[in-house]
């Protein structure tokens, strides 16, 4: 057995904050996000090179036997634009939740975390609606590279949103039990960083996939 006194997690966190200016949890989260971003880079890079090498109708055939209507269907930038706006707003409600707990406002934390969860769930709902309509129109993962790249890129992001909603829900339950205070709210900040990352990636994906 060691003669050293046990180091409690909160003491270690405070030491790290004082010594380095960030908590071990925050450093670990950024390390995870940096590696996670590599996955998105691979998918986005693949999308760009495939699209760049297939001009015009080669990329999205307007005739053929891909779907019941022949050509591949259009994506709906208006609907997804509204969805993008919802995700951006949910990032704002997340910073409001963090701001609330930094001021020791438990009710504000629960309210804004709840709004963030609602925003994320709405985003997923609209994405499922969009998938349903595109699949009904005949666009599938196996429908040409257009369908494959669209579904893989957006579904990979969608799984991140789903993870974020589950993660946020766990934090909300802990918040409802009064776990977080103005002095101890590291977990709220970490879930916030993850959620903003999901928003940041969507900003890039939306522009590349839907706007041109």
């Amino acid at each position: 057995m060691s003669n050293l006194a046990p180091i409690d997690a909160l003491g270690q966190t405070k030491y790290s904050l004082k010594r380095f200016g960030y908590t071990p949890g925050k450093f670990a989260m950024w390390l995870f996000l940096a590696s996670d971003a590599m996955g998105f880079v691979g998918l986005i890079g693949a999308y760009i090179i495939l699209r760049a090498s297939m001009p015009g109708e080669l990329w999205r055939p307007l005739v053929g036997d891909w779907t019941e209507a022949g050509g591949l269907p259009h994506l709906d930038p208006i609907l997804t634009g509204i969805n993008t706006f919802i995700l951006i707003i949910s990032s704002f409600t997340m910073v409001l939740a963090l701001d609330a707990i930094q001021k020791g406002k438990q009710a504000g934390l629960k309210l804004w975390l709840g709004a963030t969860i609602l925003g994320g769930a709405t985003f997923l709902g609209i994405q499922v609606y969009e998938y349903y309509h595109l699949m009904h129109a005949g666009l599938h993962v196996g429908s040409h590279l257009y369908g494959a790249t669209f579904f893989v890129c957006t579904a990979f992001h969608g799984m991140h949103v789903l993870s974020g909603v589950i993660y946020l829900s766990c934090i909300w339950i802990a918040a409802a039990r009064g776990k977080y205070t103005a002095e101890n709210h590291s977990a709220v900040e970490l879930v916030g960083i993850f959620w903003h990352f999901v928003d940041l990636v969507w900003i890039i994906l939306f522009t590349i996939i839907y706007l041109f």
Binding site: G45, I49, A52, S53, P55
Partner: peptide, 15 residues
């Protein structure tokens, strides 16, 4: 990586 991908796309069948 992306710069190379775009260049490759333009140099190939292209935009």
């Amino acid at each position: 990586l992306c710069a190379f991908c775009i260049w490759d796309g333009i140099a190939g069948p292209g935009f």
